[in-house]
Computed example of a mutant assay.
Amino acid sequence: MRIRTAVVATALLATLSACGSAPNQAPGAAPKPAGAEIAGQIDQTSVVDAGPVGQNLPGTPMLDKIRQKGELSFAGSRNTIGFSQLDPASGKLSGFDAGIAQLLAKYLLGKPNAKLQSGGSDTREALLGNHTIDIAVQTYTITEDRAKLVNFAGPYYLAASGIVVKTSDTTTKQASDLAGKKVATESGAAKDALLKAVPTAQPVLFDTAAQCVAAVEQGRAEAMTLNNASLYGVVATKSDVKLLDSTFGSNPFGIGLPKDDPAFKEVVNGFLKAIEADGTWTKLWQATVGKLVKTPAPQPPQIGSVPGS
Rank of each mutant, 00 (worst) to 15 (best):
residue 8 V to I: 09
residue 11 A to E: 14
residue 13 L to V: 03
residue 25 Q to P: 06
residue 25 Q to S: 15
residue 29 A to Q: 08
residue 29 A to M: 01
residue 39 A to Q: 09
residue 42 I to Y: 00
residue 58 P to N: 10
residue 64 D to S: 15
residue 65 K to R: 15
residue 78 R to V: 12
residue 79 N to Y: 09
residue 85 Q to R: 09
residue 88 P to H: 14
residue 119 G to M: 05
residue 125 E to I: 08
residue 126 A to Y: 11
residue 133 I to S: 01
residue 134 D to I: 10
residue 157 Y to W: 09
residue 163 I to N: 04
residue 163 I to V: 12
residue 166 K to A: 03
residue 167 T to G: 10
residue 170 T to P: 08
residue 177 D to V: 10
residue 180 G to E: 01
residue 182 K to P: 01
residue 182 K to N: 08
residue 185 T to A: 06
residue 187 S to H: 14
residue 188 G to C: 06
residue 189 A to E: 13
residue 189 A to F: 12
residue 191 K to I: 00
residue 192 D to I: 04
residue 199 P to H: 11
residue 201 A to V: 14
residue 202 Q to Y: 02
residue 209 A to M: 07
residue 219 G to C: 13
residue 219 G to T: 08
residue 224 M to T: 08
residue 229 A to T: 15
residue 235 V to A: 10
residue 239 S to F: 05
residue 241 V to E: 00
residue 245 D to P: 08
residue 247 T to W: 11
residue 252 P to A: 07
residue 263 A to C: 03
residue 268 V to L: 09
residue 272 L to P: 11
residue 281 W to R: 02
residue 281 W to D: 01
residue 282 T to R: 14
residue 284 L to G: 04
residue 285 W to P: 13
residue 292 L to E: 04
residue 294 K to W: 03
residue 296 P to Q: 10
residue 296 P to Y: 00
residue 304 G to Q: 12
